[in-house]
Structures are given as C-alpha cells and as structure tokens.
C-alpha cells in the first residue's frame, strides 16, 4: 500500500498551446520536470499557470503540443486515466466534496481501490477488507498533513486553511508520482504557511515524488523549488534555478513592469 519508492518518470511538456476564443492562454510552452524534483511555475495573474495545470491533469485538451509522463502521452487521456497513472492535483480555489475529511480522503483512494457496485452493495468480505485498509492509510495521511484531529469532521465546518490542507491530503491519498499544487498556501496565515511548506518538504523527501508548484509566495518558491519556469501572457519567458530566475531581466520586467528591485512576494488575489 505504501508508495513505490521507484523514482517517477520525467514529466515532459512540449509546445503546449491553449487558445480560448481568441485568447492565447498558453503559447508554445515547454518545460521538463525532472524526476523527484520540485518544479515551480510562476508568473503574474492571468499568465496561464492554472491553465497549464488543467492541461496536465487532462481537464483541458491543448490546441497543440503534448505532455508525456514517461512513455504515456497524457494529452490523449481522460482525467481519470491520468489520475490512475499517479498524477494528483489540488485546485487554486478549494474544491472539496460533501462529507467528512475521511470521505474526501477516501475519494483520493478511489483509483487505488477496486470494489465495484455489486461487491459493495452486498458488503462482500473483499470489499469490507479493502475499505478498512484504505481507511487506515487515509488516516495516516491525515496525521501526516496535520488533519488527524479532524478526520471525522465535515469538511464544510473546517476553517479555510484546513480545507486547503484537505485538498493536499486528498491528492496525497492517490499515492501520486507527480503532485500538482496550485497555490497551496494562498490565503493562509504565516503559521499555516510554514506548516504546509514543511509537509511538502517532508512528503517529497519521504515519497520521492515530483512536485509541480504554482505559487505567488516567492519566499516559498525560493525555499522549495529546484527549478523554476516563468510564464507571462501564456509564454514561458524564463527557466532556471530560483537564483538564476531571480536575476533574470525578463522576469523582473514581467513582475515589476520595468526597473530594478528584488522579486518580492506577490499575493494571488484568488
């Protein structure tokens, strides 16, 4: 049940273009997420970061270009097939479903479990056993993400920061090889930010997965990311390590208009 420690395959984005009724949301974007790294995608509001995630998770079909995970071409697959390959994501605006934290996390176990309608309806021992095993793992993940005390609490009753963490835990329940995090700390206070940063660092060290991170909090990006891709108006304007990107004149222009200065945190007005 524990995640296979084998390194995930590389995630390769090649020439992806997404057009919405005349608006070019992504324009020939390419980047590669090396196995087991944290790859940040940053850029101003409306740059196309979330659109990029929607392509990676199969919700949008690009006008042109491909996304590959190892040998699999994700751009041909439906979202549930991509999930089954071990690609999990969170959403910028929290999208949880009804029920308790446990219910939400168990949804994350969906792709890893088998019980169908007949076996579940008749409560066959196989289905009962499977459910019990996955529930135990979901509880572990809840502990890992600091949600242990809220395991049986309805999600709707939780404060914002906890709900945001439910999404992270739900994605982890997929035992992903690639984890896509869309602004995981947006709207959180300082303590919550630190905590989530720690969790991301831990899971990456323990589970060895690749993380694609969209975040406006530059401090977090600089601390966590191995590589950074900068998007501006749908185009990838810079690639590199956090330090390289911070000094890149293109990036300074995208973020600050023109002029100099340090790349300060820019808050997503989500």
């Amino acid at each position: 049940m524990t995640a296979a420690p084998a390194a995930p395959p590389a995630l390769d984005v090649r020439g992806v273009t997404v057009r919405f009724a005349g608006l070019l949301a992504l324009d020939d974007v390419s980047f590669t997420v090396a196995p087991g790294t944290v790859h940040a995608v940053i850029g101003p509001n409306g740059a196309g970061k979330s659109t990029c995630f929607n392509v990676l998770s199969g919700l949008y079909r690009p006008t042109a270009g491909t996304v590959r995970l190892g040998a699999a071409e994700l751009t041909r697959l439906a979202p549930h097939r991509i999930a089954a390959l071990g690609v999990a994501r969170t959403f910028q605006n929290i999208v949880t479903t009804r029920g308790t934290v446990a219910d939400n996390l168990m949804l994350g176990r969906h792709a890893l479990s088998r019980a169908g309608f007949a076996a579940t309806a008749l409560r066959l021992p196989s289905a009962v056993r499977e459910q019990r095993a996955h529930l135990a793992r979901a509880r572990e993940i809840a502990e890992l993400t600091g949600l242990g005390a809220h395991f049986d609490t309805p999600v709707a009753l939780l404060p914002y920061g906890d709900r945001k963490r439910v999404e992270l835990a739900r994605a982890l329940c997929l035992e992903p090889r690639v984890l896509l995090l869309d602004e995981p700390v947006a709207g959180m206070n300082a303590a919550e930010r630190t905590r989530t940063t720690e969790v991301v660092r831990e899971i990456r060290a323990e589970l060895g997965l690749s993380v694609v991170l969209v975040e406006h909090d530059m401090g977090l990006v600089m601390r966590l990311a191995d590589d950074v891709t900068v998007l501006d108006f749908g185009r990838a304007v810079a690639h590199g390590t956090p330090d390289e990107v911070r000094r890149d004149p293109e990036v300074l222009r995208a973020y600050l208009g023109t002029g100099t200065g340090t790349g300060t945190a820019k808050e997503g007005a989500a």
């Binding site: 998770s57 919700l59 549930h80 089954a84 009804r98 949804l107 994350g108 997929l174």
Partner: peptide, 17 residues
C-alpha cells in the same frame, strides 16, 4: 462516495480517478 463527489464536483471527482 464516487457518486456523491461526482454530483458535488465533476472536476474533483474526475481528477481523483
């Protein structure tokens, strides 16, 4: 759980498999 999730958010349900 899958059906309930589907009715709340088709998107969330589908990316969860």
């Amino acid at each position: 759980r899958a059906l309930a999730a589907l009715s709340d958010s088709e998107t969330a349900a589908s990316v969860m498999g």
